[in-house]
Design a protein around this nucleic acid. Structure first.
Lengths: 217, 217
DNA sequence: TGTACATCAGTGAACGCGCGTTCACTGATGTAC
DNA sequence: TGTACATCAGTGAACGCGCGTTCACTGATGTAC
């Protein structure tokens, strides 16, 4: 994007300016964690960043532009999860791999919760830029899962009635959404540990085609 | 709620007024379907309802109040889904029951998508009224599913590593969230039919402890 | 090694729109006799 | 069966705050010689 190199009035952006831009991004992320999107104001962002409204417009056209930038950078972190699918979960260490993935996913979501939430809202409301950002982030993970389902079906481990891509999307959806319920789950007595174990169990069963049977690790 | 009986200025609400209130609710739901929450204005609601801003405040303290009322009534419709759990899915008609539930759920979500989305957003942002509304709607379904998992475990059909309540919550989360991805799934070639079949397959496998094996229906 | 000039970066202060909100009023409906 | 009065319901018009946005300016940093 060429906009990265120029400020609103056409000035070239140097390192000092980059730092200011970064402060605005960080401030937005921070406010998003505290309050909701609906209360997010330009003035508050600049106050939080220790700068002025006029400065904001040097770097962003409007609040949506900051949100989109945050979404994109949060999305990049999702790519790290791909490593957990470098090999299939069909062997004896499958359950451990499933657990590792769930752990990583929970960590990822925890770190970027506020931003991902608004990204998803915007995407669902039909904004194409946010939609693209979401797809770009989630698709590689979904594809990796879908590939495993296909191979599992070829090996006779997984029910052929499940469509690989839809199955993978369903698993990602489950993870994404469930973390929103974490608080309620806690009140009902579900610990973080047993949530992890349950999610890993469902994933393992669905993507690798077998049950944990017995715990090991 | 006593507020149902009185307008903002203390007047008693008769049937004509109830109709106006209803029009405001309907108008809000309609606007919510067209645009997002972030563009929802009192003035637009009243214009859509064919009335005036002043009238709005006779019935609702603010926009949040309308949204909450809509959330609550949408939530009531979720109760109808409970019927699909009146008996367990362990018999030969289990797969058919799973499919029927998925169908019903997809229909429910389709009808109330816009409202449920904002309800969930508000709930996740920490608003207790919306949180309660969500819990009130989802909990009975989750409990019904969890009961089935428990019985499945007792019968040796389901992996004991899965915590019943968390498992049920995960299934609901999957359904809720996946429907947001429906459009993308369509673009990737997943039909509504095969989505239904896949979701039913995962649910059946997770809640009843077995695979479809062969299609029947 | 200092000075002048160009460019980068930040902002105070104001403008004005849009929207939430309210008040004082008109109109509609119901009911008593 | 009509008239008067009470109550229910709706709204025009205005007020004013809050916020997005911009302009003309000051200050900071870099560089040429």
């Amino acid at each position: 994007m060429a906009e990265n190199l120029l400020a609103a009035d056409g000035r070239v952006i140097g390192s000092r300016a980059q730092a200011t831009r970064k402060r605005l991004l960080d401030a937005t992320a921070k406010l998003l964690r505290r309050h909701g999107v609906l209360e997010l104001k330009v003035v508050d962002i600049t106050r939080e960043a220790g700068t002025s409204p006029a400065t904001f417009y040097q770097y962003f056209a409007d609040v949506d532009a900051v949100l989109l930038a945050l979404s994109r950078s949060a999305g990049e972190n999702e790519q790290a999860l791909l490593a957990l699918f470098s090999s299939d979960w069909f062997g004896p260490d499958g359950p451990a791999k499933a657990r590792a993935f769930v752990d990583a996913y929970m960590g990822y979501w925890h770190d970027h919760q506020a931003v991902l939430r608004i990204r998803n809202l915007k995407a669902e409301e039909g904004d194409t830029a946010f939609r693209r950002s979401r797809t770009r982030a989630a698709l590689p993970v979904i594809d990796a899962m879908a590939g495993m389902v296909e191979r599992g079906q070829a090996a006779g481990r997984i029910d052929d009635a499940l469509e690989p891509f839809a199955t993978a999307a369903a698993m990602v959806a489950m993870l994404e959404r469930l973390l929103a319920y974490q608080k309620e789950l806690g009140q009902r007595g579900t610990t973080r540990e047993s949530l992890r174990e349950t999610l890993a169990g469902i994933l393992y069963q669905t993507l690798a085609g077998s049950a944990f049977e017995l715990d090991e690790d």
